[in-house]
Amino acid sequence: MPIPPPDYAPKPALEVLTDRHRECLALAARGLNSCAIGKALGLSPRTVDEHFARACEVLGVRTRIQAVALTSVTDISAPCRAPPGSRSSTPRTGRDGKS
């Protein structure tokens, strides 16, 4: 069987992810944990963990980190609502309080 050309790379099952899965993964990629993601989306942390478990199953990966890495390099577009004051909306500063 011939090897497919480089531009033919089978896409992972990203199309099967729900919008909620995408939202959770996108917020996790910004550094938020289950509690912060839950607050941002109006969900319990346990429900967020369930969304991660299902997303990992669909993507064929074992961990949340693998799922985030896979979706980050594949450029999923998810409607994200980061909570005010989260790490994603607050500029980083050093210990002295300066950027």
Results as ranks from 00 to 15, higher is better:
Ala69Trp: 00
Val58Asn: 05
Ser88Glu: 15
Gly38Cys: 06
Thr93Phe: 05
Gly38Pro: 02
Cys24Met: 04
Glu57Pro: 03
Arg54Phe: 10
Ala78Val: 01
Gly38Trp: 01
Gly31Ala: 13
Gly97Trp: 09
Leu27Lys: 07
Leu27Ala: 04
Pro10Leu: 08
Ala69His: 06
Asp7Ile: 11
Pro91Arg: 05
Lys11Trp: 00
Pro91Cys: 01
Leu32Ala: 05
Cys24Trp: 00
Leu43Gln: 09
Gly94Trp: 10
Leu41Tyr: 00
Ser72Trp: 12
Phe52Arg: 05
Glu15Arg: 07
Ala26Trp: 04
Pro6Cys: 02
Leu25Asn: 02
Pro83Cys: 06
Ala26Asp: 05
Val61His: 04
Ser44Glu: 13
His21Asp: 01
Ala36Gly: 12
Pro5Glu: 10
Asp7Asn: 12
Val73Asp: 01
Ser44Ile: 10
Ala28Leu: 14
Asp19Lys: 14
Arg81Ile: 13
His51Gln: 11
Ala67Asn: 01
Lys11Ser: 07
Ala69Val: 11
Thr93Pro: 00
Leu41Lys: 00
Arg30Cys: 14
Thr63Val: 07
His51Trp: 08
Leu70Ile: 03
Pro6Lys: 10
Pro79Tyr: 15
Thr18Leu: 04
Gln66Ser: 08
Ala36Glu: 15
Glu50Asn: 13
Glu15Tyr: 03
Gly31Met: 13
Ala13Met: 13
Phe52Val: 05
Val48Trp: 03
Thr93Cys: 06
Arg54Ser: 09
Thr47Arg: 11
Arg22Thr: 04
Glu50Ala: 13
Ala78Ile: 03
Met1Gly: 11
